[in-house]
Computed example of a mutant assay.
Amino acid sequence: MATRPGSVTFVAVLTYLNGALDVIGGVILLIARDQVAGGGNSAAITTSAIVSILLGIVTVVVARGLLRGSTVSRALVAVVMVIDILNGVLLLFTSQVVTGVIQILWSILIVALLFTRRANAFFTGR
Rank of each mutant, 00 (worst) to 15 (best):
V97Y: 11
S73Q: 06
R118E: 13
T99L: 10
F122T: 08
I28K: 09
A32T: 14
D22P: 00
V97S: 10
T47E: 00
L91H: 02
L105W: 03
R68W: 00
V77A: 08
V23L: 12
T15K: 07
A20I: 14
I102A: 12
T94A: 10
R74Q: 14
T59G: 03
G65K: 01
Q35N: 15
L66D: 03
I57N: 08
V11K: 09
I57M: 06
G25V: 03
T116N: 13
Q96I: 00
L14D: 04
N87W: 04
S73A: 13
I104D: 04
S42N: 13
G125V: 01
I31P: 04
T116S: 15
L113N: 06
G39H: 10
I110A: 09
R74S: 09
T99R: 11
T94P: 01
I85L: 10
V111G: 11
A75P: 00
A63C: 06
A12M: 01
A75S: 13
L14W: 09
A78C: 03
V111K: 11
D34E: 13
A43K: 08
I53W: 02
I45C: 10
T3Q: 15
V13Y: 11
L54F: 12
A12D: 04
T59L: 01
L29K: 14
L113D: 03
V58G: 07
V51Y: 07
L105K: 04
G69K: 05
A75M: 06
V60W: 00
T124F: 05
T9K: 15
F115D: 08
V8W: 07
G40T: 07
I110R: 09
A44E: 09
S7N: 15
V79Y: 07
I85A: 10
R68P: 00
V36D: 02
G38C: 07
N87Q: 06
I110P: 06
V61R: 14
L66N: 03
R74C: 06
L17I: 15
D34K: 13
A63T: 02
G19L: 04
V13P: 05
V11T: 11
L29Y: 09
A75H: 01
G100A: 12
S42V: 10
A37Y: 00
V27C: 12
A121E: 15
I45Y: 07
P5W: 05
G69I: 01
S48L: 14
A112E: 02
L55Y: 10
V101C: 01
R4Y: 11
L54A: 15
T47K: 05
S107H: 04
G65C: 00
I31T: 10
L105T: 07
A12S: 08
L66A: 02
M81T: 00
V13M: 08
A78K: 03
F93P: 00
V111Q: 11
I83Y: 11
R126A: 10
F115K: 04
L76V: 12
R33C: 08
L55R: 04
G25L: 02
V36A: 09
T9G: 10
R126M: 05
W106F: 12
M1T: 14
I31H: 08
G26E: 12
S52N: 11
L109A: 15
D84I: 05
G40Y: 01
G40K: 11
T94W: 02
R68C: 00
